[in-house]
């Protein structure tokens, strides 16, 4: 148990003693095996670049048993309705000359490994690339199609499919070399206290994970489970949409989905999960 979890537990003991409501605390000890097959490691030593956290945890470890169990079998995981739609898109001959994703890439399994490395530097484009950007590059440059909206249903479905084929692989994004400037920018955003409530990502997800903020059990805000299926929304949620929601909740002007700021933040937050495994599409409340 790390210090923070220890504090959270002792805090809860004090609460029970004082007669207030008993609370859930810290990450739980459950193990995640998907489809009785994929062993997903949900904690790992924090990467060296993280100064204030010793162990990193998947958000799965902070959810209730019921929510957790939905992610343990693809037949129970509601996100797979959307993955199935993406498989149809993958195979559809939708390009200007009848191309499909499959005609260039064969099955979606050919993309195994990609999700774990993104965002990464793209040499040809000369910028940091996310999954959305790769998908759209194929659509516009190779298939003669319009770009999908970053947060469109089609795009979220496709990113869910492309995450699913990398499940169980360790997140391993680069933090130096040509991505360094973006990584630094993302880090600065992570520690900036935005909005009238003056809250940084770090206030909730680094200083207070494991604790309750009103009815929400705070996780480390890791992105290894994205896109996530949120039961509340009954749909897939993209990383940038989650970032936007978290910043909006500080009574701040947010950045836009797909903006350079959110791409930088996506890279930095992904790097805080280096060592956890790809879980997407995961299930959250």
């Amino acid at each position: 148990m790390n210090i923070k979890a220890f504090l959270a537990v002792t805090g809860a003991a004090a609460l029970v003693a004082s007669g207030a409501l008993a609370q859930q605390t810290g990450p739980d000890d459950d193990r995640l095996v998907v489809n009785n097959e994929i062993e997903v490691v949900t904690d790992a030593p924090a990467p060296d670049h993280m100064e204030f956290v010793r162990t990193i945890y998947s958000g799965w470890r902070f959810r209730s048993d019921e929510t957790q169990s939905l992610q343990m079998d693809d037949f129970d995981n509601p996100a797979f309705v959307f993955v199935d739609q993406a498989i149809d898109d993958w195979n559809a001959e939708m390009g200007a000359n009848g191309e499909s994703c499959a005609s260039c890439h064969e099955g979606p399994e050919s993309m195994r490994g990609l999700r774990a490395e993104l965002p990464r530097w793209d040499e040809d484009a000369g910028e940091v690339y996310t999954m959305e950007m790769y998908v759209n590059e194929c659509r516009t440059e190779r298939m003669g199609l319009d770009a999908w909206g970053w947060n469109s249903q089609d795009m979220r479905n496709m990113t869910a499919l492309l995450a699913s084929v990398s499940r169980g692989l360790p997140i391993n994004v680069a933090t130096d070399g040509p991505v360094r400037a973006a990584w630094e920018k993302g880090k600065e955003i992570y520690y900036t206290r935005f909005g009238q409530l003056e809250l940084a990502c770090a206030n909730c997800h680094e200083d207070n994970y494991g604790r309750m903020i009103r009815a929400d059990h705070l996780s480390q805000g890791q992105t290894n489970g994205f896109p996530v299926y949120r039961l509340k929304q009954a749909n897939l949620v993209s990383k940038h949409n989650r970032f936007r929601g978290c910043i909006r909740d500080t009574r701040a002007e947010t950045f836009s989905i797909g903006s350079p700021e959110f791409i930088a933040l996506e890279l930095y937050v992904a790097s805080r999960g280096n060592g956890l495994m790809v879980e997407g599409p995961s299930v959250r409340n």
Binding site: R193, F194, G195, E198, R244, R248, R251, A252, E253, T254
Partner: peptide, 17 residues
């Protein structure tokens, strides 16, 4: 404040806070 928004809309605050 840094990037004050209009309550919980995510939009920039216009005018006095």
């Amino acid at each position: 404040f840094v990037r004050v928004g209009e309550a919980y809309t995510g939009k920039a605050k216009e005018g006095e806070v």
